[in-house]
Design a binder for these strands. Structure first.
Lengths: 132, 132
DNA sequence: TCTTGCCCTGACACCGGCGGCAATGTTTAG
DNA sequence: CTAAACATTGCCGCCGGTGTCAGGGCAAGA
C-alpha cells in the first residue's frame, strides 16, 4: 500500500503520515523507486494514533500503544506501559476537570455579581432570576 | 512608576508588560529619557489581566475588562462587553467540561477493560476491585 | 571615571501537529 | 508522447504569551 492509499483509508493526509514515520510511530518499506510501501497492519496503527490524538494524547504518549499493537495485541491499551499512560492521563484529566470546574465557578460568580449590580443600578420589575 | 517596579509589584516581567502595552492593554507616558512612566492605576489593570489570563482568557478577551476598569468601575467585569465575554467563556467552559467528561469516560473504560483482560490472563486470588 | 543597575528596541526561540509550497522524479492512462 | 496523478525531500508558517539575547542609552553612587 502506498502513502496516498493509506492516508485515504485512515482519513488523514500524506503529510501527516510522513510526520508519524519521521517520529517513529509508523513504519514502511521502500520500493525500488523510493516510494514508501506500507504494510496492511499500519492502517490499524494509524487509526489508533488518530483516535488517541483526538482524545488529547500527544505523540509521545501514543508510543506505547503503537508498540502494544505491534506486539500482536488486538488493542493498544492492554500492555503495562499503555496502562501506565492511561492512568496518568486519567489523573491529568481529573485534575483538569477540577481546575475547569473551579474556573466555571469563578465565571459564574462574576456573572452573577455583574448582573446583580446591573439590577441594582437599573432595577426591572421582574423577579431576579435564581439560575443554576 | 517605571517598568521594573510595576513588573515587580504585579508579579510579572518587564517583557510581559511591554507586550501588553504593544497590544494596547496597558498604557504609559514617556519620560524625557524615553523611559515608560506608568500611572498607579495600571497596577490594577495588570493584575486584572494576569488573573484573567490565569483563568484561561486570551488577551483579546481581556480587552473589555481593561476598558471597563478604565471607565472607572472598580470591577472589570461589570460592563456589558465584559459580561458578554463572561457568558461566552462560561459556555465554552461548559462545552469543554462536557467533552472532557466524555474523554474521562473513555479513559476510564479503556483502563477498566485493560485491567479486566489482565485479570483474565493471569488471575489473582483477590477480588476484582470495583473502583469509582 | 568607573561600575552597577536600570531602561530602550528589535528579533529569534519555543511548543506540536500538522498545512502547504517548491522543485523534482515516477507511473499510468489515453 | 504527453499529461495527469502520484511520489519524494525540505523548509517555512502558524498560534500566543513569554524567555532571552544583542546592542545600545541613562542615572547615580564610590
Amino acid at each position: 500500500m502506498r502513502i496516498g492509499e493509506l492516508a485515504q483509508r485512515a482519513g488523514t493526509s500524506t503529510r501527516t503520515l510522513r510526520y508519524y514515520e519521521e517520529h517513529g510511530l509508523v513504519r514502511s518499506q521502500r520500493a525500488a523507486n523510493g516510494y514508501r510501501a506500507f504494510d496492511e497492519a499500519e492502517l490499524r496503527v494509524v487509526r489508533e494514533i488518530r483516535e488517541l490524538l483526538a482524545i488529547g494524547f500527544d505523540l509521545e504518549d501514543i508510543r506505547p500503544f503503537v508498540a502494544c499493537l505491534r506486539a500482536g495485541h488486538d488493542s493498544g491499551g492492554v500492555c503495562p506501559d499503555s496502562v501506565a499512560v492511561l492512568r496518568r492521563k486519567l489523573a491529568e484529566v481529573d485534575a483538569y476537570l477540577d481546575r475547569l470546574g473551579a474556573v466555571r465557578e469563578q465565571l459564574h460568580g462574576q456573572l452573577t455579581q455583574a448582573i446583580a449590580r446591573r439590577e441594582k443600578a437599573c432595577p426591572r420589575r421582574s423577579k431576579p432570576p435564581t439560575g443554576s
